[in-house]
Amino acid sequence: MIALNDYLYSGDTVLRILQKYSSDLEREAQKSHNEVDLLHCAFLSQIMDMLEHNDFLTAQSQKIREFYMYMAKEYPFLAFTFKGRIKSLIRAEEKFNGYIVEYIYDYYEQYHQFPSMDEIKKRLDCFRDLIAYRVVVSLPRCHINEGQDREQEELRYLYEIANALPSFMEQRGFRVESAKGVRVSSSRMLQENVRPYYRDYIYNEGEYGYRSLHITFYDDTAKCYMEVQLRTKAMDDNAEIGPANHLGYEKRQENERARRDAIPVGECRCFDEAYERGMRLQELELAKLDVNMFSAVNNSLINDGCGLYRGRLILPYEHLSRFQSDLTS
């Protein structure tokens, strides 16, 4: 079985690794008539295309910056950051294989049989976050009045921003996409007209306490999808350095092994190969990899200059709350 791990020790660039991996995978898939691996190759081609032809990101990030300027004008007292990334090769590969494992397992648990190839292919037509922007907001303590609850005030502003975002982006050539009933919000702070577009992990908290608002847009100019995530600083801390990150990793490994136990080896080839690829990625020792512009001391101390593990940074914008230096505590 061909797996990404086998290409991470040659000293090649990420683009060269992608080209070799995709080429070998496609050749093998054609020989074995493996339709899922052919879809896998198409997915890898999307990533390669973004790495080779990413001029559109300049125009796209400029439009995102316009929303940043809007927020700076409307909410001068808030501190907030805008960050954008192209999903890393390793994370994208984990997600692709994880989708297959999760879908086949859930289907098997519900129907006691495996999904058809057409059903698996339909499930895999759902990647919308290879490009993702994150907006993180915080209300500085100096702007909180006596009797106000900081968390509730930040939530109120976060949902206000969420209500304004869809129409703002549509006016600039983006098409907002339906959330297709995933994590439907029942929050009274989210307006009815935008509710169908958001996956609300705040009202419907995710695993390990993960909280965020997610919305997907199609960029009509660049002809690609992008995701925008809205969080408060506390939510972002939990996702990046809290339980949603560390406990999530350990629990994911446990969940993967439980799924493997439920489906005997050899019963479903798609499941077997996706599971094996996913587990091998989780077991990577990053310090041993030999990828151009990437180095690591261990799996925590990483200098990723090529987007292999942490993705490629598109933009960082930081707005520090105005008037803080003029206020006394």
Rank of each mutant, 00 (worst) to 15 (best):
C306E: 08
S10T: 14
H319D: 00
V136S: 06
Y208R: 10
I144K: 08
Q229D: 01
R175G: 15
H143P: 01
N299Q: 05
T232S: 15
V101M: 02
S329H: 00
N5Q: 11
D106I: 01
D37A: 13
L247T: 06
D106Q: 14
A3P: 00
L130P: 00
Y203G: 14
R322E: 14
S185Q: 15
H53W: 02
I90N: 03
A179N: 14
I120D: 00
S23H: 12
T232E: 09
M117F: 03
V265W: 03
Y249V: 14
I2A: 05
Y218F: 15
E74M: 06
M293H: 04
V136W: 03
I2S: 10
A274S: 15
L39F: 14
Q152C: 07
G173A: 12
Y7K: 08
E177K: 15
L130S: 03
E177M: 13
V14E: 09
N292Y: 11
L78R: 01
H40Q: 11
Q113D: 05
Y208A: 08
D261Y: 06
V182S: 13
K20Q: 01
I263K: 09
S212K: 08
S325Q: 07
V135C: 08
E227C: 09
E28L: 13
E52A: 13
V176N: 15
P243G: 03
M169L: 12
I215M: 03
R65G: 14
Q282N: 12
Y159W: 05
R312N: 08
F294D: 02
Y111R: 05
M71I: 05
K83W: 04
L284R: 10
R183S: 11
I104C: 04
E52G: 06
I144W: 03
E177A: 12
A222M: 07
E318L: 11
H112W: 01
D290I: 11
L284H: 10
H246C: 00
H40D: 04
E35I: 08
I17P: 00
V137N: 02
E28R: 12
A162R: 08
C142R: 07
G242A: 09
L327P: 00
E285P: 00
F56A: 05
D55L: 02
H214D: 06
F96Q: 06
